[in-house]
Amino acid sequence: MKIVKTGMAGTMESSDINITIEKNQESGIKIYLTSSVEKQFGDQIRKVILETLEQMKVNDVVVRAVDRGALDCTIRARVQSAAMRGAMSENQIDWGLF
């Protein structure tokens, strides 16, 4: 999936995560995370974001995530939405990806 513009999903509410995905000028996936549960779950949140992007075959992006204690399922859903919006394919969802 190719990111063509900045895609955003999620809110700043507690138990949610706000995800912004944009093109990375360099290659690779870069994640900037701030989280209210960084100490306990920071690594896990990064892992879920990365795995979700890999599953969707999204490469070379910068992800900015502001987490307020979202569960893994929420993180996955927000990353998927943000990526599809960034790929301008939110109306042609390829369910096979999930």
Binding site: V37, K39, Q40, F41, G42, D43, Q44, L71, D72
Partner: peptide, 9 residues
């Protein structure tokens, strides 16, 4: 099961 296993502080 809901939240995962938190890392020790």
């Amino acid at each position: 099961k809901i939240v995962g296993k938190p890392k020790s502080i």
